[in-house]
Amino acid sequence: MYALLVLDMQVGLVHGPQKPWRCEALLETVNALMDKARDAGAPIFLARHIGPVGSAIEPGSPLTRVVSELKLLGGETVFDKRRPSAFAMTDLADNLRACGATGVVITGLKTQYCVDSTCRAARDLGFDAVLVADGHSCSDTSVMNAWDIVAHHNATLDGPFCRLVRAEEWHF
């Protein structure tokens, strides 16, 4: 069984000063994946990135709230993380195993940080990692535009670190 893992779709990133590339499409894709997971009875986990006390994303900050554009129905597991990998210093791996998940479908923000780190860690921990090719994003940087960052990570991660699929092709 596969679980859906949604990374950092939180107010401070989605509605912050640097809008993620294709943000509206990403929100639609994540909602569609959550619907597919629910229809199949697959667990849904949402990670929120939390920073240290005194930072803009300190515990309890409104910037860490899951964005209201995601259709949460109450059966999802929302958890906090403090490192780029959703597995580092969290109970995610144990919770996935406890619900019988052998694989994790990864979507969300930001491609070059948390998406990348989580894909690599999932495979290292023995999970079948599936990255939704059109289900992650980031913002432009001073070195590279977001489209290139996403394309680069899709090409780099596919194979050794995860299996790459398009959202419309994935079935739980």
Rank of each mutant, 00 (worst) to 15 (best):
A3L: 11
L4S: 01
L4H: 04
L5N: 02
V6E: 01
D8V: 05
M9W: 02
Q10W: 10
V14Y: 03
P17F: 14
P17D: 15
P17V: 09
K19I: 06
P20E: 05
W21S: 08
W21V: 04
R22D: 13
R22V: 03
R22W: 10
C23P: 01
A25T: 09
A25S: 13
L27K: 11
E28F: 09
E28W: 01
V30C: 09
V30W: 02
N31M: 05
N31Q: 12
N31C: 11
N31L: 09
N31V: 00
A32R: 15
L33N: 04
D35G: 01
R38A: 06
D39P: 00
G41V: 11
A42K: 04
P43W: 08
P43D: 08
I44H: 04
F45L: 12
L46D: 00
A47N: 02
A47Q: 02
R48H: 06
I50W: 04
I50F: 10
G51P: 01
P52M: 13
S55T: 15
A56S: 14
I57W: 15
P59M: 06
G60R: 08
G60H: 07
P62S: 10
L63A: 14
T64Q: 09
R65I: 01
V66C: 10
E69R: 10
L70W: 13
K71S: 00
G74I: 09
V78W: 10
F79G: 08
K81Q: 05
R82W: 12
R83Y: 15
F87E: 10
F87M: 14
F87N: 12
M89C: 04
T90I: 11
D91V: 00
D91W: 06
D91C: 05
L92N: 07
L92K: 03
D94R: 13
R97P: 01
C99L: 12
G100H: 10
A101R: 03
G103H: 04
G103T: 08
G103D: 04
G103F: 02
V104C: 05
V105Y: 01
I106L: 13
G108K: 00
G108N: 06
G108C: 08
L109H: 10
T111P: 05
Q112Y: 07
Y113R: 03
V115K: 07
D116G: 08
D116P: 07
T118P: 08
C119P: 04
R120H: 13
D124F: 12
D124M: 13
G126A: 12
F127H: 06
F127K: 06
D128V: 01
D128S: 12
D128K: 09
V130T: 14
L131F: 04
L131I: 03
V132S: 01
G135A: 06
G135W: 03
H136K: 11
H136T: 03
S137M: 13
S137Y: 10
T141E: 08
V143P: 00
M144E: 09
A146Y: 09
W147C: 11
D148P: 07
D148C: 04
D148A: 14
I149F: 05
I149E: 03
I149L: 14
H153F: 14
N154S: 11
A155M: 13
T156Q: 14
L157N: 04
D158V: 00
D158G: 10
P160M: 15
F161W: 15
R163Y: 08
R163V: 09
L164S: 12
L164Y: 01
A167K: 02
A167E: 14
H171V: 15
F172H: 04
F172K: 06
